[in-house]
Write a protein that binds this DNA or RNA. Structure first.
Lengths: 200, 200
DNA sequence: AAAAACTGTATCCTATAGGAAACAGAGTTT
DNA sequence: AAACTCTGTTTCCTATAGGATACAGTTTTT
């Protein structure tokens, strides 16, 4: 080994709050059984860079992390959790039938489900859509995210941009981009009941 | 203004594939009605840095982006979408009753819903849980993410780590951390039917 | 309408991110 | 056991991230 006469430049232990980022990546890589070389090639980065990232010896760019998470099929939301907050880890929330949290609007009767878990990512609720005429429709509902709906009872028509009205009845389900303008109207004599799960 | 004799170093238009990252951040900041100064202070970064990020003139570190997304209450998964793939934007997927894609396991009869939309983030399916004795239970199901379940018919018992068995019947709902070991057994004479929505 | 207080952008500079290559250690092969 | 071939780590270097500051444009105050 050759003599190193230079002043030692210290850059150790960056990790501060970013915390277990490197560890997460190392686990994901090893779960795939990949070497630094292989993972680096898949993500388009050098193995030295990857080594430093996994050992928290650097503060990688977002771009690098994005490429890595793609290559390793990683679960990205976890990476954003700072030490302390850990989502709903190890918890569950039970709501008996009809015991959700009511929330009414002029058009809908909502029953929010599992509201004790405030940090959950999906938002489940049951809506009672009041029977009414199609002419009452006013404006699109539009909000970023994705939504899944399942018709519990009754009949309704789902209307949205880019598509023609879709008649639905009990047992039917639908998944859609909620940033696309959308809305529901009951087309049965009685109210229709729908289970919704909204993301974001 | 003084004469600039240096060779112009060009660093414009980094944006390459990272794409609309800066735009997303600008939108989130403006949605909060914040100036660069305010948002920067909330995230602990300088306004000049933030300006460059929003205009895609730099390739920010993951750490910076994490601080920003926290301060701005941003929805992080979107940021990981690269330019080509845009989720399910502007699309919807309808599945009539009983027309899901069947997928059976020894214990469950699954019917996957809305399988045409492959890039959706939530995974909805209906499971028929075969009536059986509690003694048949073998091992925990465990996978990262969150799950919501809604009992459509029949009765069952949900069992999981950290908790005691939970009897559920039609109309009940449950939200839980799916990394926590869990499982279901039917406790009614006939099979129980459950609607599940799984996230990641 | 000048002065002042804002806004977001552009410039300058230093610490460092990330690639190339050297290094070190553990198996393999000849 | 020496020569190869892997692994992951460390060193070296250049391009650049991000803060400080100067600049420019717009609105508010005196």
């Amino acid at each position: 080994m050759r003599e190193d006469t230079r002043k030692k430049i210290t850059t150790p232990e960056i990790a501060d709050d970013g915390a277990a980022l490197g560890q997460s990546i190392r686990e994901a890589r090893q779960a795939k059984g990949w070497t630094l070389e292989e993972a680096g090639r898949a993500a388009g980065i050098g193995r030295s860079t990857l080594s430093k990232i996994e050992n928290n010896l650097t503060r990688p760019s977002f771009d690098i992390i994005r490429r890595l998470t793609q290559a390793l099929d990683m679960h990205t939301p976890n990476l954003f959790l700072q030490s302390g907050q850990s989502g709903i880890s190890g918890r569950r929330d039970y709501t008996p039938k009809g015991r959700g949290e009511p929330k009414d609007t002029p058009t809908y009767l909502h029953e929010l489900l599992c509201t004790d878990l405030t940090s959950k990512r999906m938002l489940p609720y049951i809506s009672e859509i009041k029977a009414r005429d199609i002419s009452e429709f006013e404006t699109w509902i539009r909000h970023s995210g994705e939504e899944f709906m399942y018709v519990l009872s009754g009949e309704l028509t789902f209307i949205s941009e880019h598509y023609r009205p879709l008649p639905m009845k009990a047992g039917d389900s639908l998944y859609y981009d909620s940033s696309m303008g959308h809305g529901c109207i009951s087309t049965s004599a009685e109210n229709a009941r729908v289970l919704w799960v909204s993301l974001e």
